[in-house]
Design a protein around this nucleic acid. Structure first.
Lengths: 228, 228
DNA sequence: GTTTGTGAACCACTTCACAGCC
DNA sequence: GGCTGTGAAGTGGTTCACAAAC
């Protein structure tokens, strides 16, 4: 037996790997061959010890006294994140946001290919967009199977989101990114992440109000704790 | 008096308050007058003890043996989050995403009013959208001052994001929501949150790959944590 | 000298469990 | 009996600080 360490990568580390990846891509494009944890931390906006600890979960890929080889690390992170393959992605809900997501360049440049668009509204079906034709939601099971869709993006109104999630799960999609402002329930075997645009503004509102409401006299130190 | 209490609300709690708020709005619309921590936890997708602890940071607003009054709690959370006032918001970068955000109904229904759109590209300036006309980025300082803009949304490409952030900060905007895939630096007195669409997919990719590669036997539950 | 890799200390958040109040 | 509010215990994540490796 030799399959090495039983490395369990913390969720928090997983969430930062894409950020390191982005910085490393930039460095590679600038033909930088080596990077220290200090420099990478700087680019990623985190602490250097954090970078070292995070990377140590992947393996001992650095060289003491030198740093990390950019290309090598790039490959290792890509491999760890499962980005050495392309993922076919479906978007459900072709409203404002669905349109923007379908046209978003950032997905394809990072290995995520939008291969199908769905909407339950017959008025939207047939529309051509980003090189694809919007299909009826009822086609999803068939298309998911034939195109091997593993990831789905929900961009519908809140009211239909759970229903769509159910359809996705039923069709075998095991990763879901939810933009609808609703709490969705999926089996534990399915990963789900959510992005709620108005919640982000509401959180900002809290800190904004706290700042504005602060009377000059009281409490000197305004140490603001917001991560970046 | 009786207000007092040096309550410091944890960031994690602040991030959940909007979720509770959403559930409470739904309950109010359904004319439910009281809610238990158990029920609210269910709707918000969290643990009941979590709900109670979170709400306890706002004050003792529940009644033992009964639960929380929906309308009262609704008001308290709104007040805490600073949502009893409307916030004027500016969007910078009117591409795909900027368009979608400008038209997004979810903002206005929650007290965030998009009052100005900016783009550095002269070709975009003058375009009419969501009842507004896209203005040159150079107008931002003036408009920010006259319209009292406190919140800015960055929806530009990564390359111009830092520059835009600087302009926003210089114009006195103290809350920024960044959609550009870049790490931005702002003074500690400014709150910034980021939403990176492709990072979300990359995180999903990690768990997806882990699952696919997994030989039947172990289980891995995935939950999301706080974004930053 | 430089920089990694990592135990240990620290800190924040979550969950438990139960006393206190209705 | 039911449900909140909260100390205390538990968990996960971050930062420190330094020995090991170059």
């Amino acid at each position: 037996m030799a399959d090495a360490a039983p490395r369990r990568i913390p969720d928090a580390t997983v969430a930062r790997l894409p950020v390191y990846l982005r910085s490393l891509v930039e460095m590679a494009e600038a033909n930088t061959s080596t990077v220290s944890s200090e420099r990478l931390a700087d680019l990623a906006g985190v602490n250097a010890a954090q970078v070292r600890k995070d990377l140590s979960y992947l393996g001992s890929y650095g060289t003491r006294g030198v740093g990390y080889d950019v290309e090598f690390l790039l490959f290792q992170i890509r491999r760890e994140l499962g980005l050495t393959q392309d993922w076919p992605v479906a978007i459900v809900g072709i409203g404002n946001l669905g349109h923007a997501l379908a046209n978003y360049r950032g997905f394809s440049t990072r290995g995520f290919h939008i291969v199908a668009l769905f909407d339950a509204d017959p008025a939207k079906v047939g529309e051509k967009l980003a090189g694809l034709t919007v299909r009826p939601l009822t086609d999803l099971p068939l298309v998911a199977a034939s195109d091997g869709i593993a990831m789905g993006i929900i961009a519908t109104p809140a009211a239909s989101a759970q229903e769509v999630a159910d359809v996705l799960v039923e069709a075998g999609v095991t990763s879901i990114l939810n933009f609808a402002p609703a709490v969705l329930t999926v089996p534990a075997s399915v990963s789900m992440r959510k992005v709620d645009l108005s919640i982000e503004l509401q959180i900002l509102s809290f800190y904004q109000q706290r700042r504005s409401g602060e009377v000059a006299g009281s409490v000197a130190a305004v140490d603001d704790e917001m991560s970046a």
